[in-house]
Simulated scan of single mutants.
Amino acid sequence: MARRNLTPQDWSTAALRAMARGGVGAVSVNALAGELEATRGSFYWHFKDRDALLTAALEVWEREDTTALITALGDITDPRKRLTALFTVALGQEDINGLEPAIVAHADHPAVAPVLRRVTERRIAYLTDLYTDLGLDTATARRQAVAAYAAFLGWLELRRSACDVVPEVAATGTIATVALEHLISGLVRPVVHQADPE
């Protein structure tokens, strides 16, 4: 049986899955080749080296989990509905379980740092814009965006590391659905403006 030709996307997705399982160190050309039933030659056809794969994989993550999501939400004109849709997708079932916490855990890695910084800046700016559209002043909207983003990262980290202790953060189930709805309603509710300290 002939092997199918692997694409850079196939290798990148496999690298992201490995990263979610074991961090940056788990992204090994040999291990991925075995998982994909491919040769090292197939890898080197697409990538110069492991670092090039890491960069490509992280750019896939950026494109799919940030750029594409923001674009998809563009048709929703009501900011409250857009925030609700954003949090429902972001906090719901993950495409690759544990990927966000794994990437954040390697924030100082040379391949991870620039992409993670870009993604974080874009996501917080987007959230700030949405909270501004809800009527918050810029400073309050920014604070709310940072708090919401911290809640997002904490929720996913709890799901990855303590789902048995905190079943409310699971991706499915009645308890999880109720808890997620509670969290989203808190994140979407406008914050009463408080003046910045002098």
Rank of each mutant, 00 (worst) to 15 (best):
R4K: 15
P190T: 10
T71M: 09
Y131S: 01
L6F: 06
A18W: 04
T55S: 11
Y149S: 01
L53D: 08
I76S: 07
H109T: 05
G154L: 04
C163L: 13
L53P: 12
L86W: 02
I103V: 11
V166H: 13
V169Q: 02
R3W: 10
V146A: 08
A33I: 03
R80L: 10
T132Q: 14
T120R: 07
E94S: 00
I175T: 15
V112D: 01
I96L: 06
R142S: 07
F87C: 03
E100N: 06
P167N: 01
A150W: 01
Q194P: 03
A52T: 09
V146P: 01
G22N: 05
V115G: 01
V188H: 01
A111S: 12
R118D: 11
G25Q: 11
D129N: 11
T55M: 12
A31E: 14
Y131R: 04
A33S: 10
H106E: 15
W61M: 05
T172D: 13
Q93Y: 03
P197M: 09
R143G: 10
D78Y: 05
D133G: 04
L99E: 01
T84R: 10
A179S: 07
D51Q: 15
A148E: 01
D49W: 04
A107P: 04
K48N: 07
V89W: 00
I70M: 13
V89C: 00
P167C: 03
T77I: 13
D196G: 09
I103D: 02
T177F: 09
T39G: 15
G74N: 12
R80E: 12
R159A: 02
A145D: 00
I184V: 15
V191S: 12
V119W: 03
